Computed example of a mutant assay.
Amino acid sequence: MAKPSPLDTLADLAQNDTDAAARELGRLQGLRTQAEQQLNQLTQYRHEYRARMQAVAAEGMTSSRWQDFSRFLDSLDQAIRQQTAALAKAEADLLAGRNRWQHQKRRLNSFDTLIARAEAREEQVAARREQRANDEYAARLARTAATRLG
């Protein structure tokens, strides 16, 4: 078995880095999806709570009850703002993770290209060596035949 070349070692390391970046990208995608779902849930809950508040207000409510509803809506709005910021951060992290993965993938592809070129050069050298050996063998046969005839 042939000894692995330094390029093979570097390609293996690049493959490990690419795999790690892909796993991290998957994790970041999951976090982004989770943040989006939480924001959607908060927004939906706020919408439902506001509708309930309007229904109760239509029947009449005390000012203290109105303040309670308003305070809770304010706290929901604050939670929605925080979750919107969390979603924006998750999207930025996902974009950075995607860029890291793409960089690692390009690096791996570069090593693969270099390895393919090195293998092609080795095959050319081997083919020339074989051709030279065949040419020398044919020349020897010709010389041997000429000396027998001559």
Results as ranks from 00 to 15, higher is better:
residue 72 F to H: 10
residue 17 D to N: 03
residue 79 A to W: 05
residue 96 A to Q: 15
residue 75 S to T: 13
residue 52 R to L: 15
residue 109 N to R: 05
residue 38 Q to S: 04
residue 30 G to N: 05
residue 21 A to K: 06
residue 51 A to Y: 08
residue 111 F to M: 05
residue 123 E to H: 13
residue 105 K to M: 09
residue 140 R to A: 00
residue 114 L to Q: 08
residue 4 P to N: 03
residue 106 R to W: 05
residue 111 F to W: 01
residue 57 A to K: 10
residue 19 D to K: 08
residue 76 L to V: 12
residue 96 A to W: 11
residue 26 G to H: 06
residue 119 E to T: 03
residue 32 R to D: 10
residue 57 A to C: 06
residue 49 Y to W: 00
residue 73 L to A: 02
residue 148 R to D: 08
residue 81 R to Q: 11
residue 134 N to I: 15
residue 75 S to P: 13
residue 132 R to S: 08
residue 25 L to P: 04
residue 70 S to K: 03
residue 3 K to D: 15
residue 103 H to L: 09
residue 133 A to F: 12
residue 27 R to D: 14
residue 110 S to M: 02
residue 118 A to R: 14
residue 138 A to K: 14
residue 30 G to R: 08
residue 102 Q to G: 03
residue 131 Q to A: 07
residue 74 D to V: 00
residue 127 A to T: 11
residue 66 W to Y: 09
residue 106 R to G: 00
residue 42 L to P: 01
residue 83 Q to N: 02
residue 42 L to I: 05
residue 6 P to K: 06
residue 76 L to H: 12
residue 10 L to W: 07
residue 43 T to M: 04
residue 141 L to V: 04
residue 75 S to Q: 11
residue 37 Q to S: 14
residue 9 T to E: 09
residue 85 A to M: 09
residue 83 Q to H: 09
residue 120 A to R: 12
residue 52 R to W: 05
residue 33 T to G: 10
residue 28 L to T: 01
residue 89 K to R: 15
residue 105 K to V: 02
residue 149 L to D: 04
residue 131 Q to W: 04
residue 22 A to N: 13
residue 75 S to C: 03
residue 149 L to G: 01
residue 33 T to N: 09
residue 26 G to F: 05
residue 96 A to C: 14
residue 18 T to S: 02
residue 105 K to Y: 08
residue 92 A to M: 05
residue 131 Q to C: 01
residue 19 D to Y: 06
residue 57 A to L: 12
residue 144 T to D: 14
residue 105 K to H: 06
residue 74 D to M: 00
residue 70 S to C: 04
residue 135 D to Q: 03
residue 107 R to N: 03
residue 79 A to Y: 06
residue 42 L to V: 05
residue 107 R to D: 03
residue 88 A to C: 04
residue 127 A to C: 00
residue 134 N to Y: 15
residue 81 R to N: 07
residue 63 S to K: 02
residue 91 E to A: 12
residue 23 R to K: 11
residue 77 D to K: 09
residue 58 A to P: 07
